[in-house]
Design a protein around this nucleic acid. Structure first.
Length: 1164
RNA sequence: GGGCUUGUAGCUCAGGUGGUUAGAGCGCUACACUGAUAAUGUAGAGGUCCGUGGUUCGAGUCCACGCAGGCCCA
């Protein structure tokens, strides 16, 4: 049997063949099955959404996942990889709306929720085929046949079970927060929506510095002197929030001043309080000269005088008059006071911040902390509501502005001469009342609704929350046990996020997602959280009994309200189910007694609108309706460790064996997404981490470092790339180029380079092996020659190989695939191909198979096979082919694929560091000799007599002796001489050892260094001889330097050609004797004849006869002396000199200075 | 605006705990080699180590402040 030889390798085609082979032989399945019973390595697949086409960045992310799953499989672990699909959420809704040309307002009007959701369900898997195709083509091994899908009833039911568990622990509550809200669209906006391009725009708004009149009482009396109009100045860019003001915030340690001055619009004398740092913003330095008492109404320059200074702390608690008294707050609570706010700065404004708890997130928080009430009115439904309604208009209680939109929601022309925004009207009113200190246009960035283009308001909205803050300390503690790659993402981005944790806002006002399983009475005084379909069924039956519902949708669709009780196996299932329900909802008697039907999960739908139609009955007999919210889709993905197995309803064992994950990987943008929700749920539900190791990978940018986007046309099509370069080069490039957590600048030229440089070199090496192994009929079937009996270079490459195995395993274990790939690549290119193979070429093609030749084959085979294994996690297709090509002939392994093999074990005893050093020395010496030859244009084919190496110590000598032959043959020199006593022969150079001397002499180092550099040859020799040297240090101080304080290097050997690198120096004798010259000509002749053989199309193994024309004395002499050598090299059976060769038969060789007619013929 | 992160040759990247001449590969130029040959070897050109200050005898490396790109969050 022969090794496969390839004329020209088509990497993409090869991958397709291997893919077909894997499929046909179920290699992936076997890679899991054959590890049954072995320790497991748990991997979680972060579910992608299939509603868009996959991009090149997905190849990157999935390559990272795949690499470690394959690596762990090679190490003998069983690695199950369940695929999954993220199917809920806003992007899908948006896509459907776009396709149908509708907006959210149409839902329930022009399209039913039912139709809408049906459409979402269909859309979400639209690109599944493309995804599956890419997954296979790029070689990402994941189970696509049994994926978890987040919209399935079982998945939702698991979510409900988890929510119920959180509910029972008291972690689920209803509250309200200030959220971005679009009155024009009538909906709250997610941060995702707010991050759409173009939402933040620079707009010019009317800003007001308002005057809040201080109430003179005991608390504030220190601010008053006689009869004064005393005000706080507070700045706002949203004047429409002023009617809702209930507090002012100051910075605790900020310095404030009281200033005597005049109102710039009414010219009345006042005093105002503002931050000292901001004084210059409102008062001109020119006015400081003026006397405050000289002011006349209407003067441009308003004088001022600082009459007091206080800290924020001193101002806290002072009361002021309500600025715009339309609505009164809860009289029980202390409104209109100064409070301390940690967010107050003196960056802009006045250092005093106006607080309206209903219209700002900070305001809301700080008000709650200080028991400051919001301003609320009662709406037409009798519910409390803020002063601005959901249409963005003032409620009727704000009489002057009732019905007016707080932003331009009527689409009026803002450039019209008579246009006055509500903010402007408020400003005018405050000016007239003497409550405005400054009004001006202010340009700032303000968010707009991406759909309606109208400004967003921060507005109080009802929400359900998960009280993650309750377990904050534990979240932080457990996070410290997670191995983050890179570490900074865990401690920095993720760690900080945990430190500043707020409760998880779970609510989404949407249609396509997991419904919140909470039913409430209208008054909200009774509620139930449903934790399973069976529990829901029970409650429905109860509701039917109470007459609140007429039929049970869970049973109706299944076609039978009570399925006939099935025989035994169902019985046990039933028991099991009941146990589970008990464990979930608590084992109350009622539950235990309830007859549970066996459900057909395909027979109903837990989505809206179906669940919304279910009305349950409360303990006191009142109807309960579902809270209309859906839950955050991030809950879906964070719940995947449980819900992917329909846990806790099924697969308890599987879940237990697969929690937590050993490894996950996803984009760094998931830090607050999937990484967080996984972590939060695991800590709250299981008091555990969800994953032990995580790679947060960076982005894939275009070659110029710009974000890829379809719009810019710089997006790389993954199918095209893989189709052109094959998956292996694509993956290798992505991994080797930058660590996964750095952004990758993706350049197709880089992939080409990898293909040439790495795969090309490796393939060349294999081809070389295959070519000669086939010629020799070598199959590797025989006995392994003990490594100790192989040549120096064999033992060297095997030593390097084992070092490589050790390194690569270490890098993989450290989740650093880039370093692994770089180490492998360097080994293949520099050591295996450019050194080992180059030096040993002759052993492969010369002579008959003997022990030396066999050793060479075996060594190279081992290298190729081991490299294939090391690299197989990253380049799975090519390496499998390489492995199979080798193994098919050698039969060394019974595995059908490299991916069923075990990772190579380091053979520590084969690592010989001395030998590795030795070879390094050989490479360095050779490199220096080559460079000398080059400098003096002496061809490598011209043999030279000797090189001279000054040796530094005994070790170096032994080391060099070990590689002497190798060096000599590599550089074509006859002898290597060692120079031991170098005094007088070598010109030396001395250099201070800065690291050592710096520590001793510190500031005097410069002095010492100068002295050392002035040392002459005599001084250096003295130092070497005696081991120390005395130098002057300043006036009359001296110091003694030891040998370790300096580095001494040889620089030159007079009369020789010398080159040096570091401490290594090489001298070359370039005298060419007559004999050397003859040998040089012999070699030239060999070279020309070899070329001639090749040009004549002879096969490698053909034997020839050579006829040379007489006439050149040098040639004659060379043939005389080196005839046998020449014949051997060119495989000539005869080598003859003849007087003349007929011109027609002759080839004239150009011998660099003369010509030589020659004829060769095949000897058969 | 805040957090994290990146910035070293034309390009892609290395440069433990500070040590004086900052490296590699690719690309470019020149030469060599020619039984691995769409390979290979040798040499050369190419650097304000993003900027500015600071610490230090000494800073690509440590500190501060900036600038530019990226991500996340406001």
């Amino acid at each position: 049997m022969k090794y496969n030889e390839y004329k020209q390798l088509d990497y993409a085609g090869l991958a397709e063949e291997v893919r077909a082979y894997w499929k046909e032989n179920r290699i992936f399945e076997k890679s899991v099955e054959t590890r049954a019973g072995q320790p497991t390595f748990v991997f979680y697949e972060g579910p992608p959404s299939a509603n868009g086409a996959p991009g090149i960045h997905h190849v990157m992310a999935r390559a990272v996942k795949d690499i470690f799953c394959r690596y762990k499989t090679l190490q003998g672990f069983q690695v199950q990889r369940k695929g999954g699909w993220d199917t809920h959420g806003l992007p899908i809704e948006l896509q459907v709306e776009k396709e149908l040309g509708i907006t959210k307002e149409d839902i329930g009007k022009t399209i039913s929720v039912e139709e809408y959701n049906a459409r979402c369900r269909e859309t979400v898997m639209r690109f599944k085929d493309q995804w599956d195709d890419l997954t296979e083509r790029m070689g990402y091994w994941v189970d696509l046949n049994n994926p978890y899908i987040t919209f399935e009833n079982e998945y939702i039911e698991s979510n409900w079970a988890l929510l119920k568990k959180l509910y029972d622990k008291g972690y689920l509550y209803k509250g309200y927060t200030i959220q971005p809200f679009s009155p024009a669209a009538g909906t709250g906006l997610s941060s995702h929506e707010l991050n759409q391009p173009g939402t933040y725009r620079n707009v010019k708004d009317t800003s007001i510095v308002a005057q809040f009149k201080i109430i003179h009482n005991q608390k504030s009396t220190f601010l008053f002197e006689g009869d004064m109009e005393n005000y706080f100045l507070a700045w706002t860019t949203t004047p429409w929030t002023l009617p809702a003001n209930t507090a002012l915030a100051v910075g605790k340690n900020i310095k404030y001043v009281q200033v005597q001055t005049y109102n710039p619009y009414l010219f009345t004398p006042i005093t105002v309080i503002l931050a000292k740092d901001l004084l210059g913003k409102y008062f001109s330095p020119k006015a400081a000269e003026l006397d405050v008492d000289d002011y006349k109404a209407g003067d441009k320059l308003i004088p001022f005088k600082v009459i007091g200074e206080f800290t924020g702390e001193e101002l806290a608690g002072i009361q002021y008059e309500q600025l715009m008294p339309y609505v009164q707050p809860d009289p029980e609570k202390p409104a209109f006071r100064v409070i301390i706010g940690d967010f107050v700065t003196t960056e802009d404004g006045t250092g005093i911040v106006h607080i309206s708890p209903t219209f700002g997130a900070d305001d809301f928080r700080v008000a709650a902390q200080n028991n400051i009430p919001p301003l609320l009115v009662t709406d037409e439904n009798g519910k409390p509501s803020p002063l601005v309604n959901r249409q963005g208009r003032f409620v009727k209680e704000v009489t002057d502005f009732a019905g007016m939109p707080v932003k331009n929601y009527d689409g009026l022309d803002e450039n019209a001469a008579d246009y006055k925004s509500t903010d402007v009207l408020i400003a005018i009113k405050l000016k007239e009342e003497g409550k405005a200190f400054k009004v001006e246009k202010y340009e700032h960035s303000y968010p707009h609704c991406w759909r309606t283009d109208k400004p967003v308001l921060y507005y109080p909205l009802d929400s359900w929350f998960i009280k993650t803050t309750a377990v904050k300390a534990r979240l932080i503690e457990l996070n410290k046990t997670i191995n983050w790659k890179p570490e900074s993402t865990g401690s920095g981005r993720f760690g900080n996020w945990l430190e500043n944790l707020v409760d998880w806002n779970l609510s989404r006002s949407r249609y396509w997602g997991t419904p919140l399983p909470i039913w409430r009475t209208e008054e909200g005084d009774e509620e139930i959280c449903i934790g399973s379909v069976k529990e829901l069924d029970r409650e429905i039956e109860r509701a039917i009994a109470a007459g609140v519902m007429t039929e049970n949708p869970l049973r109706k669709a299944a076609g039978a309200s009570t399925k006939p009780t099935a025989p035994q196996e169902d019985e046990s299932l039933l028991d099991k189910a009941e146990d589970l329900v008990k464990s979930l909802v608590g084992a109350d008697d009622e539950n235990a007694q309830f007859q549970l039907p066996d459900f057909d999960y395909k027979g109903f739908d837990l989505h809206r609108p179906y669940v919304d139609n279910i009305v349950l009955v409360s303990k006191s007999g009142k109807p309960m309706r579902r809270e209309l919210d859906l839950i955050d889709v991030w809950f879906d993905s964070g719940a995947m460790p449980y819900a992917q197995w329909h846990y806790p309803f099924e697969n308890k064992d599987i879940f237990n064996a697969n929690f937590p994950a050993d490894f996950i990987a996803e984009g760094v943008d998931q830090t607050r997404g999937w990484f967080f929700t996984l972590h939060a749920l695991a800590v709250m539900l299981e008091d555990s981490v969800a994953f032990k190791n995580v790679i947060a990978n960076g982005l894939v940018l275009d070659k110029n470092g710009n974000k890829m986007s379809k719009r810019l046309g710089n997006a790389i099509d993954p199918f095209e790339t893989i189709g052109r370069f094959g998956p292996d080069a694509t993956r290798w490039y992505m991994i080797v180029n930058a660590p996964p957590w750095d952004n990758l600048k993706f350049n197709l030229d880089g992939v080409t380079e990898i293909q040439r440089r790495f795969f090309g070199t490796l393939q060349n090496t294999y081809s070389f092996f295959a070519l000669y192994a086939n010629l020799d009929g070598f199959t590797l079937g025989g006995e392994e020659i003990p490594v100790a009996q192989r040549t120096e270079s064999d033992r060297w490459i095997i030593s390097r190989l084992n070092t490589l195995v050790k390194e690569v395993a270490g890098f993989y274990d450290d989740y650093d695939p880039t370093k692994a790939a770089r180490a492998i690549q360097e080994f293949v290119a520099d050591e295996l191909s450019n050194w080992y193979v180059r030096l040993n070429r002759k052993r492969f093609w010369k002579g008959e198979v003997n022990q030396d030749k066999t050793a060479a084959y075996q060594t190279l085979y081992t290298c190729l096979e081991t490299v294939a294994k090391l690299a197989s996690p990253i380049a799975p297709f090519y390496m499998d082919r390489l492995f199979l090509d080798l193994n098919r002939v050698s039969g060394r392994s019974k595995s059908e694929s490299i991916h069923l093999e075990l990772f190579p074990q380091v053979q520590q005893d084969l690592i010989d560091t001395d030998l590795e050093q030795r070879m390094q020395l050989a490479q360095n010496v050779s490199s220096l000799v080559h460079s000398l030859r080059k400098k003096h244009t002496i061809k490598v084919r011209q043999p030279l007599s000797r090189i001279l190496v000054p040796i530094l110590d005994e070790k170096m000598k032994t080391q060099l002796q070990g590689v002497e032959d190798l060096i000599l043959s590599e550089v074509n020199v006859k002898n290597l001489e060692y120079l031991e006593d170098t005094t007088g022969i070598l010109v030396k150079k001395i250099k201070p050892n800065f690291k050592r001397l710096g520590q001793v002499f510190g500031p005097k180092l410069k002095l010492v260094a100068a002295q050392i550099q002035q040392m002459g040859q005599e001084d250096i020799a003295k130092m070497e001889r005696e081991g120390f040297f005395e130098i002057a240090l300043g006036e009359d101080e001296t110091t003694v330097l030891s040998r370790e304080d300096v580095e001494i290097m040889s620089e030159d050997i007079p009369g020789w050609l010398v080159a040096s690198e570091g401490a290594l120096t090489v001298a070359l004798d370039v005298n060419i004797t007559e004999e050397l010259k003859q040998e040089g000509i012999a070699r030239e002749l060999v070279n020309r004849l070899q070329n001639l053989r090749k040009d004549s199309g002879l096969e490698v193994q053909d034997k020839i006869r050579v006829i040379l024309q007489e006439g050149n004395a040098e040639v004659a002499a060379a043939v005389q002396s080196f005839g046998q050598y020449i014949s051997e090299e060119v495989q000539a059976l005869e080598l003859n000199l003849v007087p003349t060769i007929a011109e027609a038969d002759a080839t004239v060789l150009d011998m660099d200075g003369f010509t030589l007619p020659v004829r060769i013929e095949v000897a058969r």
